[in-house]
Design a protein around this nucleic acid. Structure first.
Lengths: 111, 111
DNA sequence: ACTCATTTATTCACTATTCTTGAATAAATG
DNA sequence: CATTTATTCAAGAATAGTGAATAAATGAGT
C-alpha cells in the first residue's frame, strides 16, 4: 500500500472545522466545534491524532502560540490549512457530491 | 472501541454507488462505477471487503443471482441497501454538509 | 459425454492506515 | 504546590488496499 494521501472521514471533518475556525484553530475548540456541528462525541485524542497525520501529509501546518497571561495552562498549538490541504478537501468534497448528485433518495440530489 | 456503526469514507462511497445502481448492483459494476465517478483506482477486493462490513452492520443485504445463460462465469451476488443503511447514508451526508455549509473557501458553501 | 481453456465473479490472506480511548505528561498561573 | 489548560502517548480495534487463489459457469474440441 503506497502512502495514502487521501482524507479519511474523520480527517475531512477536522479539516472542515479547521477552515471554519480560521485563526482560532487549536485542539480544544476544534473538538468542541466538531461535536457541536455533528452531534457526535469526539475524543480529543482523536483530533490530535488526526491533526498529526494531516501535518505529516502536508495538509496543515502548526505553530506554537505564546503563553497567554491571565490564565493557567499550557501554550496552545495553532493549526492552519495549507494550500494543498484546501485543494484536497475540495477534491474529496467534489468526489462525494458527484457520487450523491442526482440521487432522489437523498436530499442533496439537487445540489 | 465499541462497534462502530458509522460509515467510513470508502463505505459511504460504496453505499452511494449501490443506491445509484439499484437493481444491477454487484461487485464488478460497483467497482467500475466508483472508478468512473471518482476517478480513483478502486481495488475490487476493497469493494467486497466493504460490502461484507456493511452487511454485518445491517446496512446492505445480499442475494445470489441465478446463473445467466449466454455467458460463462460465476453467479453474481446482488447487493441492496436496507432502510437502516439509507438512513445512515443520509445522516453521514447531513453531517458533512453541515460541516462545509457556508464556507466561502468551498464551492459547496451554497448548498 | 468428457475434459479443458476461457470467462466472470467472489473469496482469502496479509499488510497498512485510520480511528478511538484513557491515561500520562507538560507548561503556565497564583 | 494545587489547579487549570492543553498536548502527547500507547495500545487496540476498525477500515482500507493489494495480489493471488478459488469458484462456478460456458462452449469448443474430441
Amino acid at each position: 500500500m503506497t502512502k495514502r494521501d487521501q482524507l479519511g472521514n474523520f480527517e475531512l471533518m477536522v479539516m472542515l472545522t479547521l477552515i471554519r475556525l480560521g485563526e482560532n484553530a487549536y485542539g480544544v475548540p476544534i473538538s468542541e466545534e466538531l461535536e457541536k456541528r455533528t452531534g457526535r462525541d469526539v475524543a480529543i485524542g482523536s483530533v490530535y491524532a488526526a491533526l498529526e497525520r494531516l501535518e505529516d501529509k502536508g495538509f496543515v501546518t502548526s505553530e506554537l502560540g505564546e503563553a497567554t497571561p491571565e490564565r493557567g495552562g499550557r501554550a496552545k498549538r495553532y493549526f492552519r490549512v495549507t494550500g494543498r490541504g484546501l485543494k484536497e478537501v475540495r477534491e474529496t468534497q467534489r468526489a462525494l457530491v458527484k457520487l450523491w448528485h442526482g440521487l432522489p433518495e437523498l436530499e442533496g440530489g439537487k445540489v
